[in-house]
Design a protein around this nucleic acid. Structure first.
Lengths: 142, 142
DNA sequence: CCGAATCCCTTTAGATACTG
DNA sequence: CAGTATCTAAAGGGATTCGG
């Protein structure tokens, strides 16, 4: 079995508090977790529903994401021993509290993606046209 | 040179809108970007200050993160052509708008990490003690 | 059938050394 | 000081298989 530990080798924790925060932040602000939590916002979902609705996620990553969220107490996993098997996922009370902040992040993204797209186009155009002008355009010495 | 493109091969965009959102979400809700933006909240920082204050980040990742944030129009980079070189980073107006939602995410993490730690200990204890009880503990067929 | 585990290859992050 | 180049280690992801 793949072990669930998440300590990266470079994760030296001198200040214990800040390290835990970063550790947790990494988990929540992770590529898939945000999307999983958002989908579970409104209703319980089955594994296959999540897999279908999160476009591009592999079963493997969905499993891992759900396991971590379960371990962190944000998601509850309920197994029904029937055939065909059925496994439901839902947010816990704790999970519901993250939901709000996550939704604000997601909606920020929806609202501002136009501006970001413009900024990117601008940046790309500038660095393509004048690779060295970027330096000259900056203000002179202090 | 390492190319700045970020398209993963599996990133098939059938529904263009949702794909862009996810693309952007990945960038912002990224391991380091959140921390960089939070640090730039209160004041302009130099590269080395960020490198010092974000414990555990490598120069490489800091550079990449800052470049992406700059490209996305969230951070402004100012080069002073002096010796020794000086480069300042600050949030743009757009960057300031993400800040609020990011801070709520970070503060959620600070507030709830105790609960998460408990949930993890619980989960680890249960899966260690009774690897099979997890199944039996769930409710029976429907 | 649904979901977890495994193999294997690709992509990304991190450490280190070096440059303008 | 502020990066870049390069190499290696690790994580991600697809396909397949196993198990209930």
């Amino acid at each position: 079995m793949e072990d669930g530990t998440l300590k990266s080798p470079g994760n030296i924790c001198d200040t214990s508090a800040s390290c835990e925060v970063r550790d947790l932040l990494d988990r929540i602000a992770d590529k898939w977790s945000l999307l999983v939590i958002e989908l579970l916002a409104h209703s319980t979902r089955r594994f296959s529903e999540l897999h279908r609705e999160i476009d591009g996620i592999s079963k493997r990553m969905l499993t891992l994401s759900l396991r971590q969220l379960e371990r962190d107490g944000l998601v509850r996993r309920t197994v029904y021993p029937v055939v065909p098997p059925r496994v439901d996922y839902e947010l816990t009370a704790l999970g519901a509290t993250v939901l709000e902040t996550i939704e604000s992040l997601v909606s920020w993204t929806r609202q501002h993606r136009g501006e970001v797209a413009l900024a990117r186009a601008d940046y790309d155009r500038r660095s393509a046209e004048s690779p060295e002008a970027a330096l000259l355009a900056t203000r002179s010495s202090r």
